[in-house]
């Protein structure tokens, strides 16, 4: 599975990169929103894991940009957030084409199982 993880926390991206690699998946990471957006536009990923709270260019900004430019089709974007998300926020994101919103911290085994289910 080709996965893109966008998160400003390097400990998190390093950990998940190791995990998915060891589980035999093709994992790409970005630690910034702008760079992450470029990677989304230039690459084909089975699933994109997107942190919502990032400085400068957040996950929300990425979603808004992709939505405005109709570039969300056929992309599976799963938002990750350590904050509590209100139903309104969730509805807003899903309306804009986000597949689902998951809460951090998340057990990597559970996340992988979820991704496998979503992809199939």
């Amino acid at each position: 599975m080709k996965i893109l993880l966008i998160d400003d926390n390097q400990d998190i991206t390093t950990m998940f990169a190791k995990y998915f690699q060891l589980k035999g998946h093709d994992i790409h990471v970005s630690n910034g929103g702008q760079n992450g957006l470029q990677m989304i536009e230039n690459g084909l990923f089975d699933v994109i894991l997107l942190d919502l709270a990032m400085p400068d260019f957040s996950g929300h900004d990425i979603i808004d940009y992709l939505h405005k430019n109709n570039k969300l089709d056929h992309k599976i974007i799963i938002s990750l957030t350590a904050s509590s998300v209100s139903d309104d926020d969730k509805a807003y994101l899903i309306e804009r084409g986000v597949h689902s919103v998951l809460r951090k911290p998340i057990d990597p085994d559970e996340l992988l199982n979820y991704l496998m289910r979503v992809k199939s």
Partner: peptide, 21 residues
Amino acid sequence: SAMITHELKTPLVPIIGYCKM
């Protein structure tokens, strides 16, 4: 509250992740 939640929970992501690995 939202900020505190975010700041407190974020460090748990790699802790729980590495424990699992």
